[in-house]
Amino acid sequence: MAASPRPAAPDTKRVRLSPRAGRTLWLATLLVPPTVFFLVFEVIPMISALIYSFYRWEGIGRVGFAGFDNFRRVLFEQPFQGWTINAFWNNVIVFLTLMVVQNGLALFLAILLGGNPRGTRFYQVVFFLPVTLAFVLVGFQWKLFLNPIIGLVNQMLGAVGLGALAQPWLGQESTALFSIIFVNAWRWLGFPTIVFLAAIRSIPQDYFEAARLDGANEWHVARHVTWPLIAPAVTIIVILTFIGSFNWFDLPYVMAGLDGPPGRSTDVLALYFYRTAFGETAGALQDFGRGSALAVLLFLFVLVVAITWTRILRRREVELT
């Protein structure tokens, strides 16, 4: 029996794309929306901030070209200079403390979990759970916990006989910033832990066995096998922590306030920028010029340091391995 001829294609004019064109269209469909989003919400605001920073503002009106005057004021004129330096150092403290407390602990936990002790999955979930909560929510909740009158922290200290340690945690210059950093670490600990753990798990088991056969103890294994081989993960975490620390806004805003109380001890550059550009309803006026200058300086600082540091760390990764 002769094969019946294929049914004729329906007589509709379908546009047939070459595979190459189809692929291009597919890629464009994927790339255009995020590119437009990025342009509208990232690039254009950045450019307008750069333009605004060169103008003098009267209230909310732009009144004249100012050259570098806004930059000069935030960097060299008191009291703005003092506030800029103070906020900058607070950012540095945030970064260093998070590196040691949050990321150090995360590395330690990842190494422990890397040995697959009993309940590894359970601990993974427990450590990662706070990461899924919104910063604003966590900040608000912890602000209540740390409230000296109705807060859980002081009440629990009292309940276990440590009432003498009860403090107005967020109200003292000595404890406010570190309390907020602690909350940040509590919320974010799971993320570096998971990243480190994934890196550790990607190391072939043979390396550990070989090292142990050669008589290396756990410290030596961690120092000479694990550490060099997870260096790329460390680079990512260091850079992310750096960028996060210098863009730190939501937690101090929710937990302390826009003016970085008490005594500017929780003031960081992003708060200071926001307060300057958009005003502080309870006392300050908005100044787009100085605010934009701060935003531009902050952006340049983070960009230059992040790029330089990434290069250095990448080179070091090669040296370690």
Binding site: F80, P261, P262, G263, G283, L285
Partner: peptide, 27 residues
């Protein structure tokens, strides 16, 4: 401070609010 010194930065309110808490804390 509101009536007299909230027209320019640093406003009187910004300056005094920040320092009063420290003063009441005794620092």
């Amino acid at each position: 401070m509101l009536v007299g010194f909230r027209y320019q930065e640093p406003s009187g309110s910004v300056l005094v609010q920040e320092r009063l808490a420290s003063m009441l804390a005794g620092t």
